[in-house]
Nucleic acid binder design. Structure first.
Lengths: 336, 336
DNA sequence: CTGTTAGCGCATTCAA
DNA sequence: TTGAATGCGCTAACAG
């Protein structure tokens, strides 16, 4: 038998005595076996197997300079499939580098993000990847982070110069809006994040710019920039479409707003009301089956995650040094 | 100034000398301040602030019996929004209990799951929450896990008696199939996971049972049980619908298969071909806007995650002991 | 209420 | 090639 019950955890000492060697031989064997006789290695591995021993990674990384192999990841909304894919991309690259991720959901809440970051640091993460909330970023300043590298994804934080992966928000929003203008629309509603959210601001800028170029003034009545979730987005779309002078097209700046808008549009169509054309920043599944034409400003959240992780590991592996870099990933416009 | 750069990490010693107290006073203060004079506490907290000190949680949990505050979570496919929501549910409850989650994606791969679990244990997790892959479960047996509590979600592992959260797969699939039969369909295709996947088997059973009750024999030609992703599901749906004797309705046993099937169905409808009715186990966004009627067998992935975490913490907090429990969450049928 | 001592599991020294 | 001593950061247990 080989049960390992008992409150006390198994240590290299037990493995050592079981294998008839010193703890150091066990340690060396587990570290790759350099300078250990093959037969001793086998004895050690056999003992490890038999006892069901797991090396204590925490104790291991206690020594200063030793990496913990952990990466802290904080995202704003895991319920959004977009961020699920982002997290997957990060996890994949981390796994390829033998690292594990600790995942926290900030829910767009500053205080929560601050908690997460300090917890991550307390757990000795080798690096941080954040989709930052938009508030104060006191806790992300280099003095607070010590030498823990930070990579921002999707959004920048004002005044914080660190490695960042962004999308071409302005260009994508611009091109998406232009496609509506080219189709003859002049009254185009906007649904998006509040302007303090980095992407919210950038995507609005692209929209506004396209409108301005055609000499169109944006009507505040058909601009809604406060919705974080699907239900709120639905309500905002409804208010806009119920107007006397309703928009004939809607630019939606993100996935959550798009779903909300389409839900409302679907409801209207079932009631025999007309549905506006939609341009959506962010893809979603089955967009091709919608009852109104939906143009997608598409990008790959998983790739965004992979890029963020790649940036981080290039710092950790020492293969990149010097000034912070920004990677801006392109977006593609997909017509219905 | 108060920079904390430098390779060496900040310790309670530095905080102690900065505050003019002993390390123990710092430790006690950080632990809640019991039996420490208020003025000393203030001095300590000031020093912590000023130096930007973070307590080393790894060193802290080195002592046997001390919880690490970490929960290991392994899921099979983060790209599936369903599991994103599941992870969110787990994260929420963990956060409510002051715990952090380490997240790994197994990708339905046994070996990967095994790696994840041993890594988690090596990092001293207080507990594990798994959506198990379907292969060998050697590495999940109690002897291997020592005293780390395990909760399974969504799927059971044969021969492994542990706390488990399931859905009413059989009942849901049965009721969903019945709704198709009641609508007059007799030739109903099945798309699902391979039978070695727990839910794949259970949902097939519900389907088969409903068919049998009406005296219908399942035709293997319109049963496809190998697709893991959307593209494969699309191909399987296509093959089925291209048959001379194509099904008039499709039962899809999970989200990925539903999306794939609908993609194919949408393509056919655009070509003027008829589209079969669909019943989907798992909800997806905008299902109400599909070009064919889609009945949803709905359930709450986030709640599943919350239940799994709740089960785990009830073990950790000692509020539950004894025999493994199984919670089976109900599903609801939503007609189009 | 405060400080000193000791040891958690492991790996980097150094000595054999 | 192997082993013994030492210390990583922190906190029980024990003095004071």
């Amino acid at each position: 038998m080989s049960t390992s019950r008992g409150a006390r955890q198994l240590t290299i000492k037990e493995v050592a005595s079981h294998a008839g060697v010193s703890p150091m031989t066990v340690s060396r064997t587990l570290a790759g076996g350099r300078n250990v006789r093959p037969d001793l290695q086998e004895r050690v591995m056999a003992a490890v197997q038999e006892l069901g021993y797991y090396r204590n990674e925490n104790a291991r990384s206690l020594r200063p300079g030793q990496p913990s192999g952990l990466v802290g990841v904080a995202i704003t909304n895991l319920a959004n499939p977009y961020y699920g894919n982002f997290a997957l991309g990060v996890e994949e690259v981390a796994a390829e580098h033998g690292r594990r991720i600790m995942l926290g959901n900030s829910g767009e809440d500053d205080a929560r993000e601050r908690q997460l970051v300090s917890d991550f640091i307390g757990r000795q993460v080798d690096g941080l990847i954040l989709v930052p909330t938009s508030g104060e970023a006191e806790h992300l300043r280099p003095e607070r982070l010590g030498d823990v590298p930070l990579v921002l994804a999707s959004r920048r934080v004002p005044g914080l110069e660190v490695d960042t992966v962004l999308l071409d928000d302005v260009g994508g929003a611009y091109r998406g809006t232009v496609s509506l203008l080219d189709a003859g629309h002049t009254r185009i509603g906007f649904l998006g994040n509040r302007s303090s959210v980095f992407t919210g601001e950038r995507r609005y800028r692209g929209y506004e710019q396209a409108m301005a170029e055609r000499g169109l003034v944006v009507d505040p009545l058909i601009v809604a920039r406060a919705q974080q979730d699907v239900a709120a987005a639905s309500r905002a779309a409804r208010a806009m479409l119920d107007l006397e002078d309703a928009p004939t097209a809607i630019f939606s700046a993100n996935n959550r707003n798009t779903i909300g808008a389409l839900r409302e549009i679907g409801r209207r169509i079932r009631e025999g009301l007309p549905g506006p054309a939609v341009v959506s920043f962010d893809d979603f599944e089955l967009s091709e089956l919608m009852p109104v034409p939906v143009t997608i400003i598409d990008h790959d959240a998983r790739l965004l995650g992979r890029e963020a992780a790649t940036l981080l590991f290039s710092r950790l592996d020492g293969s990149a040094e010097g000034a912070p870099r920004t990677v801006e990933l392109p977006v593609t416009i997909e017509h219905p």
